[in-house]
Design a protein around this nucleic acid. Structure first.
Lengths: 201, 201
DNA sequence: TGATTTATATAGCGATCACTAATCATTTCT
DNA sequence: AGAAATGATTAGTGATCGCTATATAAATCA
């Protein structure tokens, strides 16, 4: 039969699914933040003991880094732009407006994991965690910048910063319990500035 | 001679200035956040021992509450609006734009205390601290709302939320080390949406 | 089968957290 | 002066933090 993705090694096989464990860790970090959750709680949610967590992920900080990476790939700050960005006829103002509206929906969809994992992680008191989240955000803003620069190179700096700032504010509002409608209203108003800055011309 | 503001009581007089101690506490909380600073560090910065801190302020949470209150009075989210709000001929769009520009300057003025104490406190992992900061923010947003409602009652909800969201995003950017110019550029772009929503008519 | 390798579970490490009991010092009251 | 009241100091409380030493279980290798 076919080989597994990775040939099983020598020692005792791992008794838990690494990806499912990451799912649990991501949910906990998203719900309670980096400092709000301890390794004991993480291990329990994963169904393992702390030593297994350290053997599989190295440390709490490295586990968090993996979660950030995972989250960024699954639900990036700039996800809906990847497609349009490759289209030379893309309409940036429209795409960015849709991005904000989508964020309004996602951030307030599940009260248990309100807001953006990355943007909230950026505010962490732990220097290491905040730095990792910041890098994650910067990468997304850079992607945003590249997308805007295709059609409006001189305004890409401001517009990318602006969109990120609005999303950060919406993330905070989502954590405060604001409804999807309330967030969407903010997104729609924010879109007015985008339309003014990036005329379809 | 004249009586002091408060007649001196019976026991041993306090050996430190309560207001100056609050200044130090505010600086520390602003620099490192509620969870980032411990009572030992607070007491040392205030030049006192932990028991004196508890005798004078009750607890870390109550001290933080006092600091929030103090900060809100000295540098409120909506400070520049109090004056104009009493003027029936106020131009809200202009006032809000100035508010955002002022925030851009204040948030990035001192790298050691970047961002807004209240808006950053809102993201705290500690439930109690986050709730207190949230109340503080809500009060400011409410004030903002009242100011806008004078001339544009139907749009006050969205606009107040929008301004608060942008300020929250700018606060995060300030903590990430963004320059005053970069923050001001975002403020100016954000003002476009305000101008579009609140025509001088 | 026996050696090697890796994962597991138990238990606990030192450090730090917010907080305080006990004692002493300094003031005002009678 | 002596009693009463309040602040300051020392030294530590139990709880939780991230993390790990140790021993055992389960797999592959020779």
């Amino acid at each position: 039969m076919s080989d597994k993705i990775k040939t099983r090694g020598r020692g005792r096989p791992r008794a838990f699914d690494r990806d499912m464990a990451l799912d649990q860790a991501q949910a906990l970090f998203h719900a309670q933040g980096y400092e709000g959750v301890g390794v004991a709680a993480l291990a329990e949610a994963m169904g393992i003991n702390p030593p297994s967590l350290y053997a599989a992920f190295g440390s709490k900080a490295l586990l968090y880094a993996e979660v950030l990476d995972r989250y960024s790939r699954a639900s990036p700050l700039s996800e809906p732009l990847i497609g349009p960005a490759t289209d030379p006829d893309a309409r940036p103002a429209e795409a960015l407006t849709n991005l904000l509206r989508k964020a309004a929906r996602i951030y307030s969809a599940d009260p248990a994991t309100a807001g953006c994992l990355v943007l909230e992680g950026e505010r962490s008191t732990d220097a290491d965690a905040a730095c990792r989240a910041r890098s994650c955000k910067d990468a997304s803003v850079q992607q945003l910048h590249g997308f805007i620069a295709v059609t409006h190179p001189d305004k890409a700096d401001v517009v990318a910063d602006y969109v990120a700032a609005v999303m950060s504010g919406m993330s905070a509002d989502a954590r405060a319990g604001h409804s999807t409608e309330r967030l969407t209203a903010v997104a729609n108003m924010a879109a007015l500035a985008i339309a003014a800055m990036l005329p379809t011309a």
